[in-house]
Write a protein that binds this DNA or RNA. Sequence first.
DNA 1: CTATCTGAATGCACTCGGTATATCAATACA
DNA 2: TGTATTGATATACCGAGTGCATTCAGATAG
Lengths: 208, 208
Amino acid sequence: MYYIEGVVEELGRRERKKQQTRRALIETAARLFEERGYDATGVADIAEAADVTKRTFFLHFATKEDVLLSDGPARIDLALRLIDERAPEAPLREVLAAAVQAMITDTASADLPNGMAAMRARLMVDSPAVQARILRTVFTGQARIAEALRAAYPEALDRTTAASVVGAVVGAVCAAAMACLQDDETPETTSAAMHRAAEIALRTLDLA
Amino acid sequence: MYYIEGVVEELGRRERKKQQTRRALIETAARLFEERGYDATGVADIAEAADVTKRTFFLHFATKEDVLLSDGPARIDLALRLIDERAPEAPLREVLAAAVQAMITDTASADLPNGMAAMRARLMVDSPAVQARILRTVFTGQARIAEALRAAYPEALDRTTAASVVGAVVGAVCAAAMACLQDDETPETTSAAMHRAAEIALRTLDLA
DNA sequence: CTATCTGAATGCACTCGGTATATCAATACA
DNA sequence: TGTATTGATATACCGAGTGCATTCAGATAG
């Protein structure tokens, strides 16, 4: 508690203000996307509604899509931390399974109450730009996970094998998620399908 | 021969001119990307060098990235045709394996002599926009393949299972390819790695 | 052979995402 | 208190992509 306070309170007024405008931008963007749709909402509109300039928006987010993916990196970090903790003592399959399941669960639990995931899901289905951006984020994330696993199990995995295995699991999960989204499945069904997809793809490791 | 001539010659002067400007745009774009780099080459530059207007460029390609992916749909169609021919008589694993291998081989054989694949590969590594676009193309393509397989093997595959399996295979192949590209591997090594990745991911079907 | 119609290409103005630069003003810090 | 940071601003700008009216070559009918 002492420690956490130390870290959290370390932020001066300046940094707090910054986080404040950042949050304002995220929430305003979410609201406007909801109200008017993604394409019909310009960056200028978001900035205007959040009472900052367009330039300020781009000071916080590199692209319009990024305002939707502000928590993407955290999810990858979660997986990397988990790998770092349990590998290489635990078996490869178990570590990879735990990492992927943690990411799926985190997506479901952190996003759903926020309402963010539902919108993101909708946008992913019908906004090509958002879909492309998410895929790229996932793809680079999976590369980092593959590299972490290869480093942890150097005798079992070379670079392309590691990439293949992680690619298979992530690819399966993403495809399953997308199939559910297009079918307008409930979040619970979708989440279950993602876990099942991960299990299916993890079979690749059961006969090495 | 008679038949082929009939089909090929069916194109009047008008359609030929159209294809001609289309090809000119593709080749000019490739040349300029090679010379100046992707980001430093504007659509206006390509159009200018191909002696048409910017507006005409967008009459042939929806986006700047699309001029690089003009043959993408054909590759998916190849897989779909193959599935249509062999399913549902042949076993699922065999059909999927054949389809994926055909796509990999087609990529290697049709692109490499053209020199197109090498550049596309380079761009995929260091141009986020191109990478995102390719991923989206692949992703929608894999959805079509999954749907075709589900339709052909309705008793073995529901929608999300089909998506998971195809997603696993395609994800593995893409990840392996990307890993090789980032390592500057030879086309042969890359192609081999993709085939190996497909084999690994196809294990998911060996224990149903 | 001529009249007509179709559609590929044009020209131009416009929107919007994203950037460059110079500047202001609040905050951290000595 | 004075100075250096730095988050935010204002303004002008670039390039991708679109809307729309127009032109002109080439297909088609009479």
